[in-house]
Amino acid sequence: MQPFTYVRASNVGDAVKALSRGAKLLAGGTTLYDLMKLRIERPERIIDINHLGELKHFDTSGERELVFGALARMSEVAADAGLVRDYPAISESLWRAASQQLRNMASLGGNLLQRTRCPYFRGGEPYACNKRDPGSGCAAAEGLDRGQALLGASPSCSAVYPGDFAAALVAFDAEIDVVGPGGERVLPFEELHREPADTPQKETTLEPGEMIVRIRIPVTPLGRASTFLKVRDRESYAFALASAAVALEMDGDVVRDARVAVGGLATRPWRARAAERLLIGRRFDESAARAAGEAALDGAIPGRSNAFRIELGIRTVTDALMTARQRA
């Protein structure tokens, strides 16, 4: 790990001012410090923002929107009774991530910026990686690709975006408030992450010096009949092979509104609007759920050993929708 200067910021303005080139914000540290140990992140300055009390609060009781400060901890938000009752998909996406220790540390804002678990990215030398070392190539392209992305990949990068919470956020049309040198702006969450294309090192649309301060989710009746389903190689404490955040609003047996997003399969949080269109206005049954799953995975491009995750993704969406239907 490279040496760095450690400073504590006492307000958002100071933090943003200090966020010069070579500086990184430290919230939970579960991604940043981890990647610093791997020498993948090499900040010259660490700005500890954990004392920005203004960003720690969250409120799920509002009439128009749910508001989460970027420093709210994953574990606390996951346990919020209102969220558990009215937006189970959001709560589940949080408590099915990582471990309770890591959820006690990790902030919501930091979680959104969690970086990929692609082993070629994390492995460092000798593996080529365009994300870690732009222009060096992609070792995963001809490598072991069981865990690589099927959606949104490019020849230069197939690294999966690993976050669970993001799948729920993208499904519920979340917005994020961002503060930067030019002031504050609102960004639809769906526009935060970029597909790799030929610049996989650019993972988000945040401008230099910008920080996420808030996450807002519009209140919706879809929340109650929602779920986040995560399939992985063991029962807990593992990243998703496939996941789905889904929500239904029913009118009898007919779907009035639907939300479908998938995780663990794509290079960025992945909203599946085609699946939603297929469901809306249609009588819900298992075949409709399956059709939605197929639509969600439409366009998936398999590699050598990850093709099973297309079918797994379809079934994950299907099963999640069946669960959501029971909650409707």
Binding site: R117, Y120, Y127, E142, G143, L144, E235, A238, F239
Partner: peptide, 21 residues
């Protein structure tokens, strides 16, 4: 990865030993 030798999943996140659950 036969192109590189060694082991690719060389940590406790990628090498899945059983957890409590």
């Amino acid at each position: 990865d036969p192109r590189y030798g060694g082991f690719l999943n060389a940590d406790l996140a990628e090498y899945a030993i059983p957890v409590n659950a």
